[in-house]
Amino acid sequence: MADHTSQPAQAGQKSDAGYWSANVRIILVSLVIWAICSFGFGILLRPMLAGIEIGGTDLGFWFAQQGSILVFLALIFFYAWRMNKLDKEYGVEEE
């Protein structure tokens, strides 16, 4: 198993907590975008977007069948990039 305790846990405690809350914040923002683009624009808010026409239908239909997937892709790559940066900021990256 990976070593869970061998790192100097005491010294790293404070920055680890900061790292974790920064991570949770990034996750929350990403998940809000995730939900707005799929459940929001794709389903619940579709009536509100009905006026915006695209290719014979409305923007909500486009989000449900194309847009949400593209947003998901962007989110995952954004998160990977942002977290790898955060790892370095807090000095918790892997060797």
């Binding site: 198993m1 990976a2 070593d3 869970h4 305790t5 061998s6 790192q7 846990a9 790293g12 680890d16 790292y19 974790w20 991570n23 790892d87 000095g91 918790v92 990256e93 892997e94």
Partner: peptide, 19 residues
């Protein structure tokens, strides 16, 4: 509790191991 704290931080991730 320590296991949970450790899982949350990338530092010190060894290779995956069988048991």
């Amino acid at each position: 509790e320590e296991l949970v704290e450790s899982v949350r931080v990338p530092r010190g991730a060894g290779a995956a191991q069988d048991h």
